[in-house]
Simulated assay, not measured.
Amino acid sequence: MENLKEFVSTQNFSSVINKIKQCLKQQDLVELNIGVTGESGSGKSSFVNAIRGLGDDDEGSAETGVVETTMKPEVYLHPKYKHVKLWDLPGIGTPNFKAEQYLTKVKFESYDFFIIIASDRFKQCHATLAKDIERMGKKFYFVRSKIDLSISAEKNKKSFVLEKTLDSIQKDCENGLRKAGIEEPVVFLISRSEFGKYDFDKLHMRMEEELPKHKRRVLLLSLPNITKEINEKKKKALEENIKYVALLSACAAAVPVPGLSIAVDLSIIAVELKKYYSAFDLDDPSLQLISERSGKTVEELKSLMKSPLRHGINHPTIIAMLSNSVMAMVLHAAGYVLKYIPIIGSVAAGTTSFCTVTKMLKKALNDIVEDAEQMLTVLLKTEV
């Protein structure tokens, strides 16, 4: 933003437009590689599918089974964010398993971090691999999978208490890792059938904290919408770009070329709104998946939504939304813009455009988040 202010101060608006477009494009090209490993049958492939928002039987899902189905690293692209790559790695724990050889074989340097999965107790092979990963300067996360099965096995006991059972499982896993040489192990409890429950929020928060900021954003947007916490974080991440999109509109409005401002507005706003719908799983392919899982038709799902864009993102609808934002922003336009770009604040056309687009995108994003909450409620009712 500071660099852009320098361009604006010289009224070099064409440079601002090009710079913003370049930055927004680069955001979508950030690559993230996640290696998922563990023993055969631990649920590696199911985890790869779940974190991509897919069921085990959906098109493009990783093959699952009770025996090892992964003989070499298999890459699975995120269905929406093609630069997010989940790698289903060969199973560990065989008699010939050597951690250093394994890491060389799976091209260790290719991954941003590793998920190490166990469906029961963690063993020496898990700890050995983790220590070698750490020694090579990469991050890893221990995931105890199939928690739903463990809970089902305990439910018939008179002394069953869910919280105590979860605490017992976690402590057992962590104690096993300590005995294997991991000083301060942290284990996340995950269920494939109830992916949003248990420790998934803790896991993704930990991953976000330890990633560089530009990769943190792409990880967050690629996560399936299975908790309100994820939705709120996505909203904040997308809100950060609104000022850049609005500035792009403002600079276009300040350039004396007839029709340029509205052309830029409609084009960039349409792209941004499509990003919102995709990030919150409200695009048509995502709604079709929700329909299949919930038993409701896509039309029934759309009837629960309030966004005026629920029937399609098109120019007439965008123009109507911009028009509604104009009157609401007039009273506080100048002060609002001056907080961001003092020079633009002196340009009437730029001021109007900046404020209108800002208000319109914030309103649209809020509506879309509310719609995403409705879809989450539908899925939760279906699971119950």
Rank of each mutant, 00 (worst) to 15 (best):
E210W: 09
K228W: 15
F114W: 06
T128N: 12
H214T: 14
E300A: 11
E292K: 11
L203M: 07
S222G: 06
S45A: 01
S267E: 15
I319R: 08
P224I: 02
H83M: 15
R121A: 12
S303L: 09
I343A: 09
T352H: 02
Q22I: 06
V84T: 07
S278G: 07
Y277H: 13
K213E: 13
V48K: 02
D172H: 06
E229V: 12
N314R: 10
Y102R: 04
G137P: 02
E208W: 08
H315K: 11
M136K: 15
L287K: 05
P258V: 06
G35N: 02
K107D: 12
P308V: 11
D281R: 10
L162P: 12
G259A: 09
A328W: 11
E59M: 13
K164R: 07
E74N: 15
I182E: 06
Q26H: 08
G38K: 03
S222V: 06
K235W: 07
L189D: 03
V161M: 07
S61D: 00
M329C: 08
K236Y: 15
H83P: 01
I190Y: 11
K44M: 07
P79E: 10
I20G: 01
F195Y: 10
D88I: 00
Q27H: 12
L322D: 01
N3Q: 12
L77E: 13
L4W: 01
H204W: 14
K72W: 00
M136D: 10
S249W: 03
A180K: 05
L129G: 03
S14D: 10
T351N: 10
L166H: 00
K164I: 06
E194W: 00
A349V: 05
M136G: 09
Y277M: 12
V330W: 14
L177H: 01
L361G: 05
F200N: 00
S42A: 14
K243T: 09
A349M: 08
I368K: 02
H204R: 06
L331N: 13
V16N: 04
D199C: 08
M329N: 06
A263K: 02
D120Y: 11
A334K: 12
A254S: 11
G65F: 02
